[in-house]
Design a binder for these strands. Sequence first.
DNA 1: TACGATGATTGCCA
DNA 2: TGGCAATCATCGTA
Length: 349
Amino acid sequence: MDDQTRMMTGLTGLGGLAQADVGDPDSVRKQQSLGQPQQDIGDILQQIMAITDESLDEAQARKHALNCHRMKPALFSVLCEIKEKTVLSIRGVQEEDPPDPQIMRLDNMLLAEGVSGPEKGGGSAAAAAAAAAAGGSPTDSSIEHSDYRAKLAQIRQIYHSELEKYEQACSEFTNHVMNLLREQSRTRPISPKEIERMVAIIHRKFSSIQMQLKQSTCEAVMILRSRFLDARRKRRNFNKQATEVLNEYFYSHLSNPYPSEEAKEELAKKCGITVSQVSNWFGNKRIRYKKNIGKFQEEANLYAVKTAVDAANVSAQASQANSPATPNSGTTSSISSSYNFYPSSVFSS
DNA sequence: TACGATGATTGCCA
DNA sequence: TGGCAATCATCGTA
């Protein structure tokens, strides 16, 4: 059955509507009950279309008459069906979009940074790691840490407040449009499905605004991170004790200044820095020493004396304890070893 | 403020 | 993947 036939069938009962005065329900009922010849549906629609050409009062009266007509629901549903098939079915195919990957990425990032979702220590951990990487003192790191957290909390608060405003606006606008469409559906064919589609369109529009909010929030977090977590920007020299520990190891292993992983870990622990910082330090030290041995000779001598004095103290303490002298290696520490003042070979390369 | 010192990064190589 | 060499960016000091 084609649409035209279906429409005709569905509207069979509307016969006589055109002939009767549609502004007069009594007249319509009378003519229907009398079984007047069926009026061509085109005439009925013609009358509906002509409403716009009538005066306001006439149009209102005709509208009322049409709304009250017993066949109005049938006409309405058929028109909805036709509209659905002709226009909305084309649109519907494109509306079933998969979740936007861009929004998913932004959501994941905001979640990871602790901006959206439950508040957590992600950002705090990052700040702490950055402070450690920068070699700052515990006091410095805790100040930076709290500062970072405070700023992240500020971003979080703004994000949630904006999100709330957005959701409220979206909900208000959706309700408004839905009410408007429901109201209009009394005079023109608007199916519930069409209202649903309109709501979906509104949500999509608002979702693009939401994406902008998420994007700018991510940018704010990235700027905050780069400001607080960029180790280069926040570089701190290692403290004196850490430098001494590293130098002691370096000069006492001058023939082979390549600490093992275990030694690096132990040095990192002793110095309060990371293993990669220890690696960096040794990399820099080897190169700079090699480039200018003369300049570092004084430093090497200094550490030679220091190591010798330390060794003597240990020896003296051992004698005082009336026990056999214990060799350095006996302590089994991977970072304590004999001092090479004049290395036979300086670096493999 | 200039300059040397120093920690971090990057690209390349074995 | 670790190490080297060059370079960058920041720190500390005169």
